[in-house]
C-alpha cells in the first residue's frame, strides 16, 4: 500500500525540458519532473505515450537506437547524463534495469548474478560468492535456489526468473533500479511477489517503474507520473493523483474512459 505520508525524500533525478526524437518522431515533449530518492515512482499512460522512452533515457539505453536525438537536461545527483563526465558503462552500473520479459542468460543461476560484477572486474571467487548470496537474498530468491546455484536459470519459473533478473541488476550495486513493465509477463501471484519485493527494496534503492497497470501504480508507488502523447500531464503523490487529479485527462484515464 502506498503510504499516506508526503514524499519527503530529496529529488535524486531531475529532468528539465527534455525532448527526444526518434528520427522525425517527437517521442518526448518538454518533459520536466523530479524523481525522489529511495521511493517508488511509477510512470503510467497508454501505449506509445513515451513512458518507456523516458525510462530508457535514465540509463541511456536509447543510445543504441539509431536516429535518437535528445535535447534538454536530465541529471542524476546534479550530473548531466549526456555530458562528458558520464561514461555509459558506469551509468548503467549505477542505474540497473529490469525488463518486460524475464531475460536471464543461458547460464547457471550463479553465473547470471556474477555476470555484472565480472564485467566490472571482480574476479575473486570468494567475493563473487558473497555478491551472489547477498543479491539473491535481496531479491528474496536465495531460499528457493541456494541448493542449486549451478542449475540453469531457465529451470526457474517465470516469476523466479524475473526475481533473478532483479538480483542480477542488484549485483553491481546500483543506486537506481528501473523496472520496465517488469510484471506484465507474470501471473498474479508472481506479480504480487515482485511488488512486495519492490516495497522492500525502496528503502535502499530509488525505484522507477513503468506500468500498464494503474492498480499496480496505485498499490506500490509513492509518486506517479501520467504521460500522454509524449507529454507529462500530471505528476504528484500517488494518493493525490488517484484520488484527486487536477487534470481532466488524468481523471479520464484513471477512471478507465480511455487507454
Amino acid at each position: 500500500m502506498a503510504t499516506a505520508t508526503q514524499v519527503q525524500a530529496q529529488p535524486l533525478i531531475s529532468i528539465e525540458k527534455l525532448n527526444l526524437f526518434y528520427g522525425s518522431f517527437h517521442a518526448l515533449k518538454d518533459v520536466s519532473l523530479t524523481i525522489p530518492e529511495k521511493a517508488i515512482t511509477a510512470f503510467i499512460g497508454p501505449s506509445g505515450c513515451g513512458k518507456s522512452t523516458l525510462l530508457r533515457t535514465l540509463n541511456r539505453m536509447n543510445d543504441m537506437i539509431p536516429g535518437t536525438r535528445i535535447e534538454g537536461s536530465i541529471a542524476i545527483g546534479g550530473t548531466e547524463l549526456y555530458s562528458n563526465e558520464v561514461d555509459v558503462e558506469t551509468l548503467r552500473k549505477k542505474v540497473g534495469m529490469v525488463f518486460q520479459q524475464p531475460n536471464p542468460f543461458p547460464k547457471s543461476i550463479y553465473d547470471n548474478i556474477a555476470y555484472g560484477p565480472r564485467l566490472h572486474g571482480t574476479r575473486s571467487k570468494q567475493q563473487l560468492d558473497e555478491i551472489v548470496e547477498t543479491s539473491l537474498k535481496s531479491a528474496v530468491l536465495w531460499d528457493e535456489v541456494k541448493d542449486h546455484l549451478k542449475r540453469s536459470a531457465f529451470s526457474l519459473s517465470g516469476g523466479q526468473q524475473q526475481r533473478l533478473c532483479i538480483a542480477r541488476a542488484l549485483a553491481v550495486n546500483p543506486d537506481i533500479l528501473l523496472m520496465d513493465e517488469a510484471t506484465s509477463a507474470l501471473d498474479p501471484i508472481s506479480t504480487l511477489k515482485i511488488e512486495e519485493l519492490a516495497q522492500e527494496l525502496k528503502d535502499r534503492y530509488t525505484i522507477v517503474m513503468v506500468t500498464h497497470n494503474m492498480h499496480q501504480a496505485a498499490r506500490v508507488s509513492n509518486q506517479t507520473v501520467f504521460f500522454l502523447n509524449g507529454e507529462v500531464v500530471e505528476f504528484s503523490d500517488t494518493e493525490k493523483l488517484f484520488s484527486n487529479p487536477t487534470d481532466q485527462r488524468t481523471e479520464d484515464y484513471i477512471s478507465g474512459r480511455f487507454g
Binding site: 539505453m61 543504441m64 525488463f99 531475460n103 542468460f105 543461458p106 555484472g116 566490472h120 533478473c165 541488476a169
Partner: peptide
C-alpha cells in the same frame, strides 16, 4: 540470439565487446 539478451548485458554496464564475447557468442 534474442535482442533481450544483448539488452540484459548492456544494461549491466557491459561494453560492446563484453556483450559480444560473454553473451552473444556463447549463445
Amino acid at each position: 540470439v534474442p535482442k533481450s539478451r544483448r539488452d540484459a548485458s548492456f544494461a549491466l554496464g557491459a561494453t560492446k565487446w563484453q556483450t559480444v564475447s560473454r553473451s552473444v557468442i556463447p549463445s
